[in-house]
Amino acid sequence: MSGETPSTTGRDGAGRTGRTTWPVLVTAVAALLVVGWVSVTAWDALVHAHPAYPILLAATAAGAAATIVLEILRPTPATGWRRVVRIALLVLAVAWIGVIGWLRPHSAIEPALLAMTSDETVDVVETPTSITLAPASGGDRTGVFFQPGALVDARAYAAVLRPLVEAGNTVVIAKQPLGIAFLALPAFDAARAAHPDLDRWVLGGHSLGGTVAAMQADAADEDADAPAIGLLLFASYPAGDVSQSLTVPVDSISGTRDGLATPAKIEDSRADLPGTARFTVIVGASHAQFGDYGPQAGDGIPELTDDEARDLISESSVDFVTGLSG
């Protein structure tokens, strides 16, 4: 009878493996689902994004698919230290999936997409790392370098910034790695190198992008070649006190219905900016109305239409930049 007793080795082995194999398989499938969700819901933004995020998505999908195949064809017994390692890797994988999903960008919508079209007045050039809108007739020697808000499609700012181009300025919008402005710190130097004909720059940005733009303007305001000559903040404020170190004019444009860069936060930022900073308040504007990418979680409810808010933001921006370059 002992010879006929079913062996528990294979079953136990499968069971031991199962305790980690099934979580591994479920996690790998979840990774594929998240990549698929991001791809379906933000495909157009991915096509036009900095390549870092699409590459991470592709690598995640490839790794998940390979994990599924290996776990099915050759499961590894989860005993001793191997089990501890597998559990640790599972935890990291779950965290990674969360990050990949969180990095999904806010896609640009109209009229920003239409503003990405070249015509007789504006030339639009898009590369994997930037968008350049330049006057078709040449323009002056002032450039505007703009940092988008966190996780926002760079194209979302084309409509609100296009009037600056129509006024004679070249605008360069950074495509940030993973949609995070801090990862695009070298982008300003790249823009200056790519446009040697521009000998002065206004740094600008929305939300987190404005925070990074303030850092870049502070670092470049005394450069001998192609210095920063102004700082344009869209619903933003500096990370620290630059009131003494920043030597260029500032225009802080904010909205009274902003639920993220709230009016109270903007008011508090006065102490961190030079005393000459201009504060332009758009009554009724929300945080997401500084670009064209739809509603944003945590934002306030606007009291202006998107077109009304955009026109007022553009008008203030043109007035500020024209005053600097004039």
Rank of each mutant, 00 (worst) to 15 (best):
M1H: 13
S7A: 14
G10L: 14
G15D: 13
R16C: 05
R16E: 12
W22K: 02
L25W: 12
A31M: 09
V35Q: 12
V35K: 11
G36P: 01
A45N: 04
A45V: 02
L46Q: 00
Y53N: 00
A62V: 15
G63L: 01
V69M: 09
A78D: 02
T79Q: 10
V84C: 01
R86F: 15
V91R: 08
A95E: 07
I97W: 05
I100H: 07
L103H: 06
R104Q: 10
H106T: 01
S118A: 14
D123F: 07
E126L: 03
T127M: 12
I131L: 15
L133S: 11
G139H: 09
Q147R: 06
A150N: 00
V152D: 07
A156V: 03
A159Y: 06
A159S: 15
P163Y: 12
N169M: 09
V171C: 12
Q176H: 07
A184R: 06
F188W: 11
D199C: 02
G204L: 04
S207Y: 04
G210L: 06
G210A: 12
A213T: 08
A213V: 11
M215L: 14
Q216E: 15
A217V: 09
A217S: 11
A220E: 02
D223C: 02
D223G: 02
D225Y: 00
A226F: 08
A226K: 07
A226G: 09
P227Y: 08
L233W: 09
A239T: 10
S245Q: 12
L246G: 09
V248I: 12
S254Q: 11
G255R: 01
G255H: 04
R257V: 09
A264I: 08
K265W: 06
A271E: 15
L273R: 03
P274E: 02
P274C: 06
G284P: 01
A285T: 05
A288W: 01
A288L: 01
F290D: 04
G291I: 00
Y293V: 00
P295L: 03
G298W: 05
I301F: 04
E303P: 02
E308Q: 15
S314P: 05
S316Q: 14
S317G: 10
D319G: 04
G323I: 07
